[in-house]
């Protein structure tokens, strides 16, 4: 649940989601769930010329499985905390595996 936990803190921040079909969508993260499905608001496609069919779209729901990358706003990521969270996650997983 680390990623879910992490992305929840990015709600209402602007992120850029890169999809597996190379479309990059920038928008305000409105919601995320445990499958990392993403809801974006006020979206803008980075290469709008290339994907004109999305120029009229204002918000999207993205199925988590089609996301390649999420570009994060670095100043809203607490790196050290994230490291610790990762350690905890690893410890949890290790504990569960046993």
């Amino acid at each position: 649940m680390l990623f879910f936990s992490f992305f929840k803190t990015l709600i209402d921040h602007e992120v850029t989601v890169e999809l597996k079909n190379d479309i990059r969508i920038r928008g305000v993260l409105k919601s995320v769930d445990q499958y990392l499905n993403i809801k974006l608001d006020n979206i803008q496609v980075v290469e709008e010329i290339k994907y004109p069919h999305l120029s009229a779209v204002k918000n999207v729901f993205i199925r988590g499985s089609v996301v390649r990358y999420v570009h994060l706003p670095s100043n809203s990521v607490d790196v050290q905390l994230l490291e610790d969270a990762t350690r905890r996650e690893a410890a949890n997983q290790a504990g569960k595996a046993k």
Binding site: L2, F4, S5, F6, T9, I11, D12, R88, N92
Partner: peptide, 20 residues
């Protein structure tokens, strides 16, 4: 343990936002 980052992050942020 399940939601460490989110919970602590929110504590650090000092409740700027309501706990969803």
């Amino acid at each position: 343990a399940e939601d460490f980052y989110y919970q602590v992050h929110n504590q650090i942020q000092g409740g700027q936002r309501q706990h969803p």
